[in-house]
């Protein structure tokens, strides 16, 4: 029974990992860009939420709105001002610029918030749970996280495949060079993609703040989880990313069930095993 419970909790945890990963997946899909500071942006959103709610005493609903708006505008501007300059065939500039950003963000957070690990008190969400059987109960927060992940991915899927914006994003992904001949502005389209990804990063950060303890150095691990979910799921497939998150979550909770020290390691090992067996992921699109 403990194993069934581990799997159930792992699936729910996978929702959080899918939220970590969805933005990364989107940015790679549209502009073949990998942001190594992705995890640090998630942690920044978590700190922002924490500061607004506990520091300034703002109502959580407004805080959520504010975090998402702040992330959206920061994402758009970051792409327009900085990241667009380093897009291109040469891999080194984007890798180094985002790696540099990662170091800057971690140390800036350290400067502002100290190295103490923090967590956002989610009130009744933390304690409420649904009892499925003797040994298995589902916490309200993990359930909400999973529902949010499904909702976010469904929304991204809708934008991508059912709207004019999504059409433009897919066209840009195919052949950015001639998009201007359709009246599209690449710099703007890329920034819109980053804006959407950043909103998802904001949502992920808010859940991270409530779910676990975090500290300024928590970003890189989040980047790795996000990356693993994307690769397990298969590049370019958003539902694949959800599946990848779930597999990673289950691997981790089962690992933790064996020995607390194995949680993260088990996730990495399952990822490497899938990379060996299915290099293109489980639901590849590209």
């Amino acid at each position: 029974m403990v194993w069934v419970n581990a799997i159930v909790q792992g699936v729910l945890l996978g929702g959080l990992y899918a939220l970590f990963a969805a933005g990364l997946s989107l940015m790679f899909g549209v502009m073949r860009f990998v942001n190594l500071a992705h995890g640090d942006f998630i942690v920044t959103a978590a700190y922002l939420m924490l500061a607004l709610v506990t520091g300034f005493g703002i109502h959580p609903a407004f805080a959520v709105l504010f975090v998402l708006m702040a992330l959206a505008s920061a994402g758009y501007l970051n792409q327009r001002i900085l990241l667009n300059r380093v897009l291109g065939a040469d891999l080194l500039p984007p890798v180094l610029v985002t790696f540099g950003l990662s170091i800057i963000i971690q140390n800036a957070l350290l400067e502002v918030f100290s190295a103490d690990s923090r967590r956002l008190n989610a009130g009744w969400l933390d304690t409420a749970s649904f009892r499925l059987s003797e040994d298995i109960s589902i916490g309200a927060l993990p359930l909400l996280m999973f529902v949010a992940a499904v909702g976010v991915i469904a929304a991204m899927q809708f934008i991508f495949y059912r709207t004019a914006l999504g059409r433009m994003l897919r066209a840009t992904s195919d052949d950015p060079e001639i998009v201007p001949l359709m009246g599209g502005n690449n710099a703007h389209i890329f920034a819109i993609a980053t804006l959407i990804a950043s909103v998802v990063v904001g949502i992920a950060g808010i859940f991270l703040a409530m779910k676990t303890n975090f500290d300024p150095a928590a970003g890189p691990a989040r980047l790795l989880f996000a990356f693993e979910a994307v690769i397990i799921g298969g590049l370019g497939s958003l539902w694949g990313t959800l599946l990848g998150g779930v597999i990673l979550g289950v691997a981790q909770t089962i690992g933790a069930q064996i020995d607390a020290g194995y949680q993260i390691l088990a996730g990495h090992l399952v990822f490497l095993a899938i990379l060996v067996a299915r290099p293109r992921g489980l639901l590849p699109k590209m």
């Binding site: 059409r167 897919r170 066209a171 992904s173 195919d174 052949d175 001639i178 998009v179 201007p180 001949l181 359709m182 009246g183 599209g184 502005n185």
Partner: peptide, 24 residues
Amino acid sequence: LPADRIHKAGLAMVPEGRRLFPSL
């Protein structure tokens, strides 16, 4: 002018090799 502005001014091109978007 940037290409998208020129396009909006009423200049459209059928590029060499057609260049359709494969995922559309």
